[in-house]
Amino acid sequence: LTVEVTLDGRRIELHGLSEEAHEILRHALERNADDKEIKKILEELRK
């Protein structure tokens, strides 16, 4: 799955996400998580 997010003013596409990762990010974006929170989530998903 692919998600497009804006971090530090740049639009980035995240490819190859699992369903779980996609859901976690989608929920964070829906509640307008800040860049710091999104980065933390991405860091966790990379593990």
Rank of each mutant, 00 (worst) to 15 (best):
L1V: 09
L1Q: 07
L1I: 12
L1M: 10
L1R: 10
L1P: 05
L1S: 06
T2C: 12
T2E: 03
T2Q: 05
T2F: 09
T2N: 06
V3D: 03
V3Y: 06
V3L: 14
E4N: 06
E4S: 11
E4Y: 11
E4V: 15
E4C: 15
E4I: 15
E4Q: 07
E4D: 05
E4P: 02
V5E: 02
V5P: 01
V5D: 02
V5I: 15
V5W: 01
V5L: 11
V5Q: 02
V5A: 02
V5G: 02
T6Y: 07
T6P: 02
T6Q: 07
T6L: 12
T6M: 13
L7K: 02
L7H: 03
L7C: 10
L7N: 02
L7V: 09
L7D: 02
L7S: 03
L7G: 02
L7Y: 03
D8K: 05
D8G: 11
D8E: 09
D8S: 05
D8A: 08
D8R: 06
G9I: 02
G9S: 03
G9C: 05
G9V: 02
G9Q: 03
G9P: 01
R10H: 10
R10V: 15
R10I: 15
R10F: 14
R10T: 10
R10G: 06
R10Y: 11
R10D: 06
R11S: 05
R11Y: 06
R11W: 06
R11F: 06
R11L: 11
R11T: 12
R11C: 08
I12D: 01
I12H: 05
I12E: 04
I12W: 11
I12C: 10
E13S: 12
E13L: 15
E13C: 13
E13D: 07
E13W: 14
E13I: 15
E13T: 15
E13H: 12
E13G: 02
E13F: 15
E13P: 03
L14V: 12
L14T: 03
L14D: 01
L14K: 01
L14W: 04
L14C: 05
L14P: 01
L14Y: 06
L14N: 01
H15E: 08
H15T: 13
H15K: 11
H15A: 09
G16A: 05
G16N: 13
G16W: 10
G16D: 10
G16Y: 07
G16K: 04
G16S: 06
L17Y: 04
L17G: 01
L17V: 05
L17C: 07
L17S: 01
L17N: 01
S18P: 06
S18C: 04
S18V: 02
S18F: 02
S18G: 06
S18K: 04
S18M: 03
S18L: 03
S18Q: 03
S18R: 03
E19K: 13
E19T: 11
E19L: 13
E19Y: 14
E20G: 08
E20K: 11
E20L: 09
E20R: 11
E20F: 11
E20D: 09
E20H: 10
A21C: 07
A21H: 09
A21E: 14
A21D: 11
A21L: 07
H22W: 15
H22M: 14
H22V: 15
H22I: 15
H22P: 01
H22N: 08
E23C: 12
E23L: 14
E23S: 14
E23Q: 13
E23A: 14
E23G: 10
E23I: 10
E23D: 08
I24T: 09
I24A: 09
I24K: 11
I24Y: 10
I24P: 01
I24G: 03
I24V: 09
I24Q: 09
L25A: 00
L25W: 02
L25V: 06
L25K: 00
L25H: 00
L25R: 00
R26T: 13
R26P: 00
R26Y: 04
R26S: 08
H27I: 11
H27M: 15
H27Q: 13
H27E: 11
H27V: 10
H27S: 14
H27P: 01
A28L: 09
A28E: 01
A28P: 00
A28Q: 01
A28T: 02
A28F: 06
A28S: 02
A28I: 05
L29F: 10
L29P: 00
L29A: 03
L29M: 10
L29W: 09
E30N: 12
E30G: 09
E30Y: 10
E30V: 08
E30T: 10
E30W: 08
R31Y: 06
R31P: 01
R31M: 08
R31I: 07
R31F: 06
R31V: 05
R31K: 07
R31N: 09
R31G: 06
R31H: 08
N32L: 10
N32S: 09
N32H: 11
N32T: 05
N32G: 12
N32R: 12
A33T: 05
A33L: 08
A33D: 03
A33G: 04
A33Y: 07
A33V: 06
A33P: 06
D34W: 05
D34T: 13
D34E: 08
D34G: 11
D34R: 05
D35M: 08
D35E: 14
D35V: 09
K36V: 13
K36F: 13
E37H: 05
E37F: 07
E37T: 09
E37C: 04
E37N: 03
E37A: 07
E37S: 06
I38S: 00
I38A: 00
I38Y: 02
I38K: 01
I38Q: 00
I38V: 06
I38L: 12
K39T: 09
K39D: 05
K39W: 15
K39M: 14
K39P: 01
K39L: 13
K40E: 11
K40N: 08
K40V: 09
K40T: 09
I41C: 01
I41R: 00
I41W: 03
I41H: 01
L42W: 05
L42F: 04
L42E: 00
E43M: 15
E43F: 10
E43R: 14
E43T: 09
E43S: 12
E43Y: 12
E43G: 10
E43H: 13
E44N: 12
E44M: 15
E44A: 14
E44R: 14
E44K: 13
E44C: 10
E44G: 10
E44F: 15
E44T: 14
L45N: 02
L45I: 14
L45T: 03
L45Q: 02
L45W: 12
R46V: 13
R46M: 15
R46H: 11
R46E: 11
R46P: 05
R46G: 14
R46F: 15
K47Q: 12
K47P: 08
K47C: 14
K47I: 15
